[in-house]
């Protein structure tokens, strides 16, 4: 069919690597050949995942480690910033909120570039020698997701505090206890925010590529490996990683969904 062949041609254009698997004979249509490769790559990918390939798991482990560490740092900074802005009034507060919201959509490559410039030999923090280490990747991802956590938690904390404010003042609740109560009662929403941050961190490729350099056994994570293997034509490994990435992403989203439905069921939300 015509439409189909256009799709395959598009695929072909965008993923030149597929071509390697195709044996061109007058009889085989290019499309069919790609389909076959696709299926074959999937089979290999699953085999890789199931076999417990060491390289594969090394990459997965590093990805998770880097993104979890970045998440932890972002939660500490982001929740603190979010709560602070939510509960205080100061000149320029509106601007800070706008900045938070703007930085939620920071392009990863830009963050990567800035961190690169900062950490490179000539940069202000060049002496630390962090460029092309997992630490650099953690820094980049932290910068990437802290605004998300700060912006969303600011909104959540402010909304709930607005609800509780008169009650707390009526009861003369000390500030720190009021804050703790709000954070505790908003915990389901805040955990969902953290999960969203983690999802963004682990799926991001631009920043870690620039500051990590995708060095084998050192700074290679899932996304950078996928980019590399795809361009090399090793679709099986790329797909295997893609499958794992999707699975993690799905697990995170499922967790978020079940959390928010638990919260709704208990009317805590």
């Amino acid at each position: 069919m015509r439409a189909k062949s256009i799709v395959f041609r598009l695929l072909d254009l965008h993923l030149p690597a597929f071509r390697k698997f195709c044996i061109f004979t007058p009889e085989t249509e290019q499309g069919l050949c790609i389909l076959h490769d696709f299926a074959e790559s999937f089979r290999l990918a699953f085999a890789l995942v199931v076999s417990g390939d060491r390289d594969l798991y090394e990459i997965i482990l590093l990805s998770v480690q880097v993104s979890l560490t970045a998440l932890l740092a972002s939660c500490i900074i982001g929740f603190a910033l979010g709560t602070l802005v939510a509960l205080t009034r100061f000149p320029g507060r509106g601007l800070v909120i706008v900045l938070f919201n703007t930085f939620m959509g920071l392009p990863p490559v830009v963050v990567g570039l800035l961190v690169y410039l900062t950490l490179s030999r000539a940069g202000p923090l060049g002496t630390l020698g962090l460029l092309y280490t997992p630490a650099a990747m953690v820094i980049a991802q932290t910068i990437l997701i802290t605004p998300i956590i700060a912006a969303l938690s600011r909104q959540i904390v402010e909304d709930l505090f607005g609800e509780y404010d008169e009650l707390f003042r009526s009861l003369s609740v000390p500030v720190h206890q009021a804050m703790a109560a709000v954070l505790w009662d908003a915990r389901y929403s805040l955990i969902t925010v953290a999960l969203a941050g983690f999802g963004r961190a682990i799926a991001e490729v631009g920043a870690v590529m620039i500051v990590g350099g995708n060095i084998d056994h050192l700074t290679r994570v899932m996304t950078t490996a996928i980019a590399l293997e795809t361009s090399k034509g090793d679709l099986a490994l790329a797909l295997a990683l893609g499958i794992v990435l999707l699975a993690i992403s799905m697990a995170v989203n499922a967790a978020a969904l079940s959390l928010s439905s638990t919260a709704a069921r208990q009317a805590y939300a």
Partner: peptide, 26 residues
């Protein structure tokens, strides 16, 4: 002075917690 008064609001403001925990808090 306020701490020695209690106000029951026209629209109840309750914590997102259980009934018992709402009292425990106070």
């Amino acid at each position: 002075v306020r701490a020695r008064q209690a106000l029951v609001f026209q629209k109840p403001v309750l914590l997102r917690r259980s009934v018992g925990e709402n009292l425990d808090f106070v």
